[in-house]
Write a protein that binds this DNA or RNA. Structure first.
Lengths: 187, 187
DNA sequence: GGGGTAAATGTCATGTAAGACAGGTAAAAA
DNA sequence: TTTTTACCTGTCTTACATGACATTTACCCC
């Protein structure tokens, strides 16, 4: 059963270092998404929305809220490459899952709702561009960053960018370079 | 053998992100419909009522509660065939989503948790048998019926059956035939 | 830099819903 | 069956919502 992790206005206020009255005003003005309880009209803010709000306003996001934000889904069919990426990211505290085919990639995306997806554009039996379109076309993944990793042509990479890739890392690459890009997106 | 899905106060509380005591108070004040068990006076909330309640209060409704029993995921790459299936099922009151590639099939499966999946075994870039294994290999989809629709050989269909297909419909088929099979599985 | 202004934020007081706890027991699991 | 889980009730405590008002901040003009 999916247990919804939510915050009250008071909790959100503490995280932002403001008065809870202010948080309520943000909600009233539509800057922060929340829903109301029927009784007194208490607000409940989904962590996901709150994190998005903090990011949008350059606020530092506390580690305990990043949970899924610091998780990465690696979509890559070549085992060596996938393992290399996984190793680098796990060493730096990210939670990593690898998907080797389109179907499990989709299933994992929906289930783990990762903060970032690394995507190899060129994979047998799977069109990377379609994956990208899917992610960008679904509201629930609006906050998901997509780091395209590929040995594609310049034109191909441009296309990926126009489809909504958050960043692009050409193959081959250094571990350090990968880490930097990832940190920039969700660190 | 229709299994009426009901929630306890504790479950409802988790879904809303509140204390179960609060849920009981909502029920007492008539804001949320529920009935009582004779023993200790346990409350049972019908999913339908709960979902209506959540909607009425702008709460996000978890996918697993959205009448998934009568929802069908059609995994099929040929648009004509997919549309034909969709038309038949929608006309009979099913909620239908179509996935044309492995990625969206996986994503939609995890998200909508459909009551039934129709699966074309022969699709470019996707192994139908693997999809079947995946579904049968994951506890969360244990109740999901899989109707294999295919022009495969007898051996192939046998293999599908052994992997856990709930039923098999050889191509080509009549609309009526499709509907009958679906009704038998989740009607 | 100083002063004026408007918008955003904080403070206070009051009412009340939501949370916490304890003791008991039905319901579910083993 | 026995054991374990989790729900119910009543009461007490906490903390949220609201409105009115005070204060701070950001910005502009000089």
């Amino acid at each position: 059963m999916s247990e919804v992790k939510v915050l009250t206005t008071g909790e959100a206020a503490k995280y932002c270092g403001v008065n809870f009255r202010t948080v309520i005003r943000w909600i009233e003005r539509g800057k922060l998404k929340a829903y109301k309880l029927p009784g007194r009209g208490d607000h409940r803010i989904q962590v996901e929305d709150f994190v998005a709000f903090m990011r949008a306003n350059q606020m530092p996001v506390p580690a305990e809220l990043q949970g899924q934000q610091r998780s990465v889904l690696v979509i890559e069919d070549q085992p060596e490459m996938a393992n290399a990426i996984r190793r680098v990211l796990m060493r730096n505290g990210y939670e990593v899952e690898v998907a080797r085919d389109g179907f499990s990639a989709g299933a994992l995306l929906s289930r783990m709702k990762p903060g970032l997806v690394t995507l190899d554009l060129k994979m047998p039996g799977m069109d990377g561009y379609e994956v990208l379109s899917f992610i960008r076309g679904h509201e629930e993944h609006a906050h998901t960053k997509v780091l395209v990793i590929s040995a594609e042509t310049v034109a191909g990479l441009e296309r990926a960018k126009s489809l909504g890739a958050s960043d692009i890392l050409p193959k081959p690459f250094e571990n350090q370079e990968l880490l930097l890009r990832v940190e920039a997106l969700i660190g």
